[in-house]
Design a protein around this nucleic acid. Structure first.
Length: 775
DNA sequence: GAGTTTGAAACT
DNA sequence: CAGTTTCAAACTC
């Protein structure tokens, strides 16, 4: 427990024997039980996260760092488990999945307490689920073996899927252990084998310190190993099981990773576009809780549907489970972002009292508790409902809360509007995590509606208030309520309001009208990075961080440093899609703009204080030069990898958003042409804005993980940009600066959000229906 | 709390 | 599609 992690030796007999015999094993054993040193060198991660802010993160990843390089070794594995040197790394937990000889190395990061918990849970779970586990294992093993057979031929393709499976299995298992014991059956069933192994391993490797699992390892190792070992996707029930597990596992992993190295996990998924699941899973991860959102929310969430889709594959029970897990994960995610709000999580995380990065805390603690409701919103006061909603996976909402609510009161014709009251009520009652802020306020609000209005208080005091429309009658996007798909309520100070149930038809029709005009009108303006799932999606590759922006801001005077700026408000960096001038968005500037506007020293100062800037591209450097005022520049770049948002730009303008492009011209005068735009570097990290950090960190991690994964396939890993995924990154411009930042930027992208296309598509296609079904 | 600023939304 | 107007939030005093 206390001691740092050590690799557990345990193993399937043969593999174990080999392993023990192996010099590596000896080496590992020789290694002190000492808690794994935080890897300084840690390849990817470390490089990325040097910034002080990141420090914690780096610490988290430290152990992993070493591992990544080694990961490839792990890959080797399946049947014969090869233990990477890395194993010696403090905590490595081996789990064998399925009877098949495949072993997995799971390294949980070091938090001792957590590890301890994990172990205990594992044991318990194994016990409880042993029966089921045996069955599940057999299935799994079969599937795995089958997969292995087939997969080996198609390693590349399958790799993703495999990794996911393995990851998911393990992760789920772990999560189940940590998060829910309540679900032991399922968990155990799927993972029971693992548990046993763990136990065995632990026994065998007494030397090993209490198992601390380095998530990083898990991610890195698993991918490779998994790829080899795990079977493929789909097809049989077993597959479904696997899938579900994958999904779950992925989530769980994320949660784990999120805290520490979520990035890795994500990346894996990303790397493996093959698996739709990954994306879905992550997206699910985003979900705070299974609780449902009102129709309006759904409408907004619609974009996320794709993410959810994967779940459908999963059996209902499993889905429920997965959802449950997801909820937990998400919580963790949010916690990270939410930071302060996350306290609840931390509590849960008692296991890791301190440092161990809160992330884990979230993982362990999340369990059913809704604690994490804190919205992903990085910025307080952001009117994120929409965003938050978007983050939430529809399925959860729909399936559980919404559907139930619908059944009860079939008022929810429309997403936003259908039955606004329902909508609100649902939110409140349901305790949606996302809406969390909103919701949190709301519960009380039920008592006093006005409070509801303050939905979005992030605690910072900045809160989104209800509308005070006078001329729009609350039937235009000007109206926050309407835009959010909510009926106006008491708190509102609007005049001539038509956004109420009595005018439902009108509301709906108006909504449709607006949507017809702009399918993304009701889509979240900014997708929170918190949504991992989206990132995972295939789109992730394509969607740069900028994709998060529905349209992108057009700020001119606010320099994207005020809430006037959608991007800033949403806690995201400006992207190519933005047409802002003099962008100084702390969350990530739009480089090109920066050059143009060299502006105010004050802002620069602000940036200095709050933001870490990094500029990937040379262009950026140039910009920096221009902005002599900004202190941040190059230094920051070097020092703080996190900050970076590279928005490659790729940017993918939202598919549907014609307008986006249209507006550019206006601002374009300045920068158009400037290549720099492509690269959005700088993700300044405001100390205040922790959420972003979490996001960024995660992002970074994810990338690093991806790299690691890549590395797995090919041993070296460390930092390279080139990953298959990288295609997304590809933007040549960045090229010069492949600096870690760029990587991080990708990461951001990944995490950040589902590509708009999905949103747009969903929104267009589904939203209308979902939202406005009733009409 | 009133007034100003701001940028998105809506309109032409 | 581009430009202008309208609008309500954000901000300042």
């Amino acid at each position: 427990m206390d001691t740092p992690d050590r690799p557990r030796a345990g193993a399937a007999a043969a593999a174990a024997a080999r392993f023990e015999d192996s010099p590596v094993f000896n080496f590992i054993n020789n290694l002190s039980p000492i808690p794994p040193p935080k890897p300084l060198d840690s390849s990817h991660n470390v490089g990325l996260f040097k910034s002080s802010d990141l420090a914690p993160v780096s610490s988290i990843f430290a152990s992993p760092h070493v591992n990544p390089a080694k990961e490839p070794k792990i890959l080797i594995r399946d049947e014969s488990v090869q233990l990477p040197h890395e194993l010696h790394s403090p905590s490595s937990v081996r789990t064998r999945i399925g009877t098949s000889s495949s072993f997995r190395m799971i390294r949980c990061q070091d938090i001792v307490s957590e590890n301890c918990n994990i172990n205990c849970h594992l044991n318990e779970a194994s016990i409880d689920s042993s029966d089921q586990a045996s069955n599940s294992e057999s299935q799994l093993t079969q599937s795995i073996q089958n997969g292995a057979d087939t997969m080996e031929s198609d390693k590349d393709q399958c790799a993703d899927g495999k990794t996911d499976l393995t990851m998911s299995q393990e992760c789920t298992y772990l999560q189940g252990m940590k998060l829910d014991e309540s679900v032991p059956d399922k968990m155990g069933s799927s993972h029971s084998g693992i548990d046993v192994h763990d136990n065995q391993l632990s026994e065998q490797n007494n030397d090993d310190e209490p198992t601390a699992c380095n998530v990083d390892y898990m991610v890195t190792h698993q991918p490779s190993s998994d790829m080899l070992t795990l079977g493929l996707p789909f097809g049989t029930e077993t597959q479904s099981m696997d899938d579900t597990q994958k999904a779950d596992g992925s989530y769980s992993c994320k949660s784990l990773l999120n805290e520490e190295s979520s990035g890795y996990y994500i990346q894996n998924s990303v790397h493996e576009p093959h698996l739709p699941w990954t994306g879905a899973v992550e997206g699910a991860a985003v979900d705070y809780t299974p609780q449902t959102l009102p129709g309006a929310l759904q409408s907004q969430l619609m974009p996320c549907n794709k993410l959810n889709e994967p779940r459908e594959y999963i059996p209902t029970e499993q889905n429920a489970l997965s959802q449950h897990l997801r909820g937990m994960r998400r919580r963790s995610l949010f916690n990270e972002k939410a930071g302060a709000s996350n306290k609840g999580v931390e509590k849960a995380s008692d296991l890791h009292p301190v440092n161990s990065t809160p992330k884990r805390k979230t993982i362990s603690g999340d369990n059913n508790s809704k604690p994490l409701r804190t919205p992903p919103c990085a910025l307080p006061g952001i009117g994120l409902h929409l965003n938050a909603f978007a983050a939430i996976p529809k399925e959860k909402f729909v399936h559980r809360d919404i559907q139930s609510t619908i059944n009860e009161s079939s008022n929810l014709p429309c997403p936003a509007g259908s039955s606004p009251q329902h909508f609100e009520q649902n939110i409140i009652n349901d305790d949606l995590p996302l809406t969390t802020d909103v919701v949190s306020a709301e519960p009380s609000s039920q008592g006093s509606p006005k409070k509801k209005r303050h939905k979005f208080d992030n605690g910072d005091g900045t809160s989104c208030k209800r509308c005070s429309c006078k001329k729009s009658k609350c039937l235009k996007l000007y109206c926050e309520c309407f835009a959010a798909g909510v009926y106006c309520s008491e708190p509102c100070t609007c005049e001539g309001c038509l956004n109420n149930q009595s005018n439902m038809e009108k509301v709906l029709s108006t909504r449709q009208q607006i949507e017809s005009r702009n399918p993304l009108a009701f889509a979240p303006k900014v997708i929170h990075t918190s949504e991992p799932g989206l990132e995972l999606g295939e789109f992730s590759n394509k969607t740069p961080a900028s994709a998060r922006h529905k349209r992108g801001c057009n700020c001119k005077k606010s320099s994207c440093l005020k809430k006037y700026c959608e991007c800033f408000q949403g806690g995201v960096g400006c992207s190519i899609s933005c047409r802002c001038e003099g962008c100084k968005n702390a969350f990530g500037r739009r480089e090109g703009v920066a050059v143009l506007s060299i502006e105010e020293p004050k802002q620069a100062l602000e940036e200095k204080n709050g933001c870490v800037k990094e500029e990937k591209c040379e262009i950026d450097k140039e910009l920096v030069v221009y902005q002599a005022t900004d202190p941040a520049p190059a230094e920051n770049v070097l020092t703080t990898p996190l900050a970076v948002d590279c928005r490659p730009l790729a940017c993918l303008p939202p598919p549907s958003s014609k307008k986006l492009n249209t507006k550019k011209p206006r601002s374009s005068t300045k920068l158009t042409g400037h290549p720099s735009r492509l690269c959005n570097s700088q993700a300044p990290l405001k100390t205040d804005t922790l959420p972003p950090f979490a996001n960024y960190a995660e992002m970074v991690l994810s990338e690093s993980t991806s790299d690691a994964l890549k590395g797995n396939s090919s041993p070296q890993t460390s930092v390279k940009v080139v990953s298959p995924n990288k295609k997304r990154i590809s933007p040549p411009r960045i090229g010069t600066g492949l600096s870690p930042i760029c990587k991080s930027g990708r990461k951001l992208i990944l995490k950040s959000i589902p590509s708009f296309p999905s949103l747009g598509g969903d929104a267009k296609n589904e939203d209308p229906k979902a939202k406005l079904p009733a009409p």
